[in-house]
């Protein structure tokens, strides 16, 4: 039943990818003319053939030219990125974003307007990296994020404490007791995941799935951090608070405190980044190993052994 609900959720998320959340137009061959009344809702990808955007037409997203010929005389709300092929910007062409070229031929009428920048050598935008806020604003955002994550984790831990299943405990146990298979699985995931995401984004057709996968990865990361935070909080409470106050701290509070502390450790310069990297590998693997905390991982009998060192000595 649980699987059916998960499939339903995935299907629901994918339904949201239709026009409105993300749309795109792919042109692989042939001749296509978009008249003055045409409005294309998302990005456009040209692989080959000839595409003409008449004066008065509008593309709501960016255009990526990988090959073929584009004759643009309308309005482009996003960027125009030219990796290969031929682009002719007509007299009525207006680009609200940047014109980025790293290959092919681009010709431009004198009256064509480019509201953004004209960049040569970098066809794909890296604005997201540059647009990160700094200073107090960044710290404030980070703090809000940490408190939100810790609060949600605390609520979950409190709710979970009254139930038999212990997802957070399962994940934390997998990460700490069975760290080797967790790290191996996490490493494999991290080796494959970035390549997979880039590849999917590159195909354009699969961009909606990139968002779904990104969401899942974020959830996995959040679950892992909260699990480890819960364990850290529990350990701190047992070591320092219980001897002083003689009253057990609630699971919700220990999880909240541990998660905040863990995120604080990640924010430390140098050490924090290394810790973050190692923990990310370990937690990704632990979440997968415990199947999102739904089961307690148990190694096969060949790994679990209780033997005397003398049996390894020479006869």
């Amino acid at each position: 039943m649980k699987r059916i609900w998960l499939l339903f959720l995935l299907f629901f998320l994918l339904m949201g990818c239709d026009d409105g959340v993300y749309s795109s137009t792919l042109i692989f061959d042939g001749r296509h003319t978009f008249g003055s009344e045409t409005r294309l809702p998302g990005d456009v990808l040209l692989r080959a053939g000839t595409t003409e955007l008449a004066a008065g037409s509008q593309v709501a997203g960016s255009i990526y030219v990988l090959g073929g010929t584009l004759v643009a005389n309308g309005q482009i709300d996003g960027d125009l990125a030219v990796l290969d092929g031929e682009v002719r910007l007509g007299p009525d062409a207006v680009i609200f974003g940047d014109l980025r070229t790293s290959g092919g031929k681009t010709r431009q009428a004198d009256t064509a307007v480019i509201r953004g920048q004209t960049i040569t050598g970098l066809a794909l935008p890296l604005d997201g990296v540059q647009a990160q806020p700094g200073g107090w604003e960044a710290t404030f955002r980070w703090l809000i994020g940490v408190l939100l994550l810790a609060s949600l984790g605390g609520v979950w831990a409190q709710w979970q404490s009254r139930r038999q299943t212990q997802p957070l405990r399962n994940v934390a146990d997998a990460a700490l007791i069975h760290w080797l298979p967790s790290a191996a699985l996490g490493l494999l995931g991290l080796l494959v995941l970035p390549i997979l995401l880039v590849m999917m984004a590159f195909t354009v057709v699969l961009i909606p799935l990139v968002f779904v996968l990104g969401l899942i990865v974020s959830l996995v990361w959040a679950m892992g951090v909260v699990s480890l935070g819960a364990l850290l909080g529990e350990w701190m409470a047992a070591r320092w608070l219980k001897p002083t106050f003689r009253q057990p701290m609630s699971p919700g509070w220990t999880t909240f405190t541990g998660t905040v502390l863990l995120m604080g450790l990640f924010a430390l310069p140098w050490v924090g980044e290394a810790l973050l990297g190692l923990t990310a590998v370990l937690l990704l693997g632990a979440v997968l190993l415990s199947r999102f905390g739904t089961r307690t991982y148990e190694p096969p009998p060949t790994v679990v052994m209780a033997e005397d060192l003398s049996v390894y000595e020479r006869p």
């Binding site: 007791i177 069975h178 080797l180 190694p299 790994v303 679990v304 052994m305 209780a306 033997e307 005397d308 060192l309 003398s310 390894y312 000595e313 020479r314």
Partner: peptide, 23 residues
């Protein structure tokens, strides 16, 4: 006694036991 659960390789146990032929 090595312990109830050990993720260690047998190779390391042979090294600890100085069983160089097995290594």
């Amino acid at each position: 006694m090595i312990g109830d659960y050990t993720g260690s390789m047998d190779l390391f146990l042979y090294i600890r036991a100085r069983n160089w032929p097995a290594v």
